[in-house]
């Protein structure tokens, strides 16, 4: 990034973030500016705070009673933790894909349409159009187009996860958070998801938590390495994987711990 870039050019910005679960501090003074239409990988050993960090951006941590935080999360220049933030609105623009595929116990069609229907969109032709578009975007259309009324639970794990991605895309977010989206999938499904992430980058800003170093190296533009609540290093993925500045980053990436 060039020196002259102003702060507002970042799509997302985490500023001086401290997160506590009760007394326990799980993130320490994390700063991370993220440009639009990029893929940012968050890596680090289990319990390092990367998932907690990811869930800050759609306020999913709010459901944890003992959670509290200091610092700011800016999306499009606005702090999403302001009092007047409408959390439901926020989550329409910041979608999330979870570790384990979690389709609703409904038909494939109804899964995709769910996010639209809760917004009061009920026009059949419009729903049809968005459902098809979203499933196509998620590279699932050819596999399910004849069975849209079938239960989503009957799909394979990899298909379910692409369905969940399609469901997220249907509400047209600008940011997509992915929490180890391929960790429960076989290699072929994983490859499909990775390919998909590359395509989605054109339109969305993506943050992805992953335990898979190769995956982070393959799909991301930037990588942040977390360790014990610190953002140890945050840089171009190329840089992190070939020439890390910090010794701990190097040890983790080369598999010496974690």
């Amino acid at each position: 990034m060039s020196e002259s870039q102003s702060e507002s050019s970042f799509k997302i910005e985490a500023k001086n973030i401290d997160v506590f679960y009760g007394e326990k501090q799980v993130l320490k003074d994390v700063n991370m500016p993220i440009e639009g239409n990029t893929v940012t990988a968050l890596i680090g050993p289990s319990g390092c705070g990367k998932s907690t960090f990811l869930r800050l951006f759609n306020r999913m941590n709010d459901y944890i009673d003992v959670f509290h935080k200091k610092g700011e999360i800016l999306i499009d220049g606005k702090d999403i933790y302001r009092k007047k933030t409408n959390v439901e609105e926020l989550r329409k623009s910041v979608g999330m894909v979870f570790q384990k595929p979690n389709p609703f116990p409904k038909s494939i069609y109804d899964n995709i349409a769910y996010g639209l229907r809760i917004q009061g969109i009920n026009k059949k032709s419009l729903l049809d159009e968005i459902v098809e578009k979203s499933i196509r975007q998620a590279a699932l259309w050819d596999e399910v187009k004849d069975n849209l009324k079938k239960s989503a639970l009957a799909l394979s794990g990899g298909q379910q996860q692409r369905l969940c991605i399609a469901r997220t895309l249907a509400v047209e977010p600008s940011v997509i958070l992915m929490d180890e989206p391929a960790s429960a999938l076989d290699p072929i499904s994983t490859a499909k998801i990775e390919e998909l992430i590359q395509e989605l980058k054109e339109q969305y800003t993506i943050l992805i938590v992953t335990h898979n170093m190769q995956q982070a190296g393959r799909i991301s533009d930037k990588t942040g390495f977390f360790y014990m609540g610190d953002l140890v290093e945050f840089d171009e993925t190329q840089q992190i994987f070939t020439n890390p500045k910090n010794e701990r980053t190097e040890n983790y990436i080369s598999g010496r711990f974690g």
Partner: peptide, 18 residues
């Protein structure tokens, strides 16, 4: 009804009652 199903709904911008 599993928590993961509810979480998915919240993540799409649904309110609790929805």
């Amino acid at each position: 009804v599993p928590l993961t199903t509810r979480t998915a709904s919240y993540a799409l911008g649904a309110t609790k009652w929805q």
